[in-house]
Each structure stands twice: as C-alpha cells, then as structure tokens.
Amino acid sequence: MNDHNHILHNIDHDGIDRRGFLKCMAWAGTGVLWTVSGGVLISKTLAQIAKAGPVLLATDLSFLQISDSHIGFSKEANKDVTETFKIALDRINAMPAPPSFLIHTGDITQLSKPEEFDTFDQLLKSCRTKDVFFVPGEHDVLNDGGKLYRDRYLKSVDAKGAGWYSFNKNGVHFIGLVNVLELQAGGLGQLGEEQLEWLEADLKGLGADTPIVVFAHIPLWAVYPQWGWGTSDSERALSFLKRFASVTVLNGHIHQVLQKVEGNITFHTAMSTAFPQPAPGTAPSPGPMKVPAEKLRSMLGLTSVHYKQGNSALAVVDSNLS
C-alpha cells in the first residue's frame, strides 16, 4: 500500500483512541473492500488489494460492498451495465483472499422487472464469494412494494417487517435497513416507526464496544436533501447508535463516494457499478450522468471525498482503475 493513497484520520480525542486510528482509504472503481480489524474499518480499492496482496490476519474479517448495479438500464450514461457489473465481479474474483461475503446496497435493477433480477442472479453466479446480503433500492420495489425483491434476496436472513434484519460476523453486528418504501410526498428516504422500534430493540443487548455496521440504500445522513439524498427519520436511528464506540454506515444511491465522520459514526457512500451521478447541486437534477464512453470507468473511479471530524482533517487521494 502506498502511503499517499491513504486517508489517515486521527480520532484520539473522542474516546476511542485505544483502537489506534481509523484509516480509511479513498478508492476507485467498482467495489470496496472493508476490513474489520480491532473494531475499526479500513477500506481499500480492489485494484490495490490485487496489487498488494492480502494483509489480513487470520482473525480479521473482510467483506465487500457493491451497489447500484441497475441491471436493465441501457441509456446514454452506460449502455452496457451488465458488462460493468461483470467487471466488478471479475475484480472480486481476482482478489488473492476472497471476501467473506458481499453486501449489495440496493438498486439491483433499473425497473424491478423479473427478467432484470434474473440477469443479475445469473451474473452473480460467476462470483466466487457466495454469501451476499442485500438491502433494496427504490428501483427494486417500483411496482409491488418490494415483494419480488423480498422473495428472492432475503432467504438467508431472518428478515422482519419490510425486509430489515441483523446478523453477527466475527464479533461485528451488521444491520440491514430498508428506507425506500412508503415514501411520503415531499419527503426523503424513510425508515418508519416499526423499523425504528425494531432497531432500538435489536441494539439493546449489545455492549458498547461491539462494532456496528449499518447498511441501507439511501444515505442515513443529509447528503443533499434537495435531491432527496437523505432519510427523514435517520436521526432517531442514529440516536440508538451513539453509545457504540465504532459505528460504520454504508449507503449507495448517490453513485459516488462521500464520507463523513460524526462522533463515533462514520458514514460512507459507495459508487455504482452502472453509471455516475452528478455531485450534489452541480446539475439541474440527480440521475444518470453521461460522460464520454472512454472515460466512463475512470469517471466511476474518480473519487472525491471531503470530510472531517472535529479538528482532525482528513486527506483524500483519488485513484482510479484505468
């Protein structure tokens, strides 16, 4: 790993300095490897993993987040989203140490069509990593309130309500939330009362030193509410999480990397495997952003992360796959 490719973030003023530091790496491309080591998460690009080889200890846990594959999309911004999804899978398969599992943070399909889900499932079969945990995007629940999605993608979890669930891996508590259903006019993403009550109860028995990973499609922080990039009742969810020493929130939806650290909670959005979207406020609206075809992958790879916590500045270095 090259030092200039790191984000080093000293958080020793917030009470979790015994965990050393949070080292986050801006990455480029179509997947992110998250490594849980000593309760903090470290992210790396797949290209860097392939280059540098695994650095994990036997007790470490690695998993991978992919997002927004939008199978079925065929407009100008990317006429072949299955191809770019395949490239993402190839990158995963090329990793010297495969991740323990994948997390897909939603928008599997473009239009919730059965044939789109079929295509996705078929493509996913080529992935060496077989365990995949899902949360739905709004594109996956367009016409049936998510029934088709739930029938297919929640078989291996103990899902409640509209499809939320939690599970434990290597001492880390993972929580998959649904914030794309029953949205209200004029509003944002929404968790809803039933899910919030479940979340509060789900966390109740856990010690404050249990590392928590929360994943959901729409960001659980106000990235850009004018474009609907936020979740109206996420504050309540976060209030349940504040007592934990290490909380990482992984989202998709906005097709670009943004990160924010708030107390012990790190928020991170992933890139899409399908097409980029404009940076908040830089276009008349969100939605697929067309870039020159030869630049698509490098544009997906261009990462701009701006965040800081307290008085600790974070440095961000972009790297891309092309």
């Binding site: 594109h139 949205l183 006019a185 004029g186 509003g187 944002l188 609907g228």
Partner: peptide
C-alpha cells in the same frame, strides 16, 4: 400528487 420513487 408526487413521484413515489423521488418524493421530492
């Protein structure tokens, strides 16, 4: 009325 996909 609104768009249920993008309720804004």
């Amino acid at each position: 009325y609104f768009c249920s996909v993008h309720p804004k």
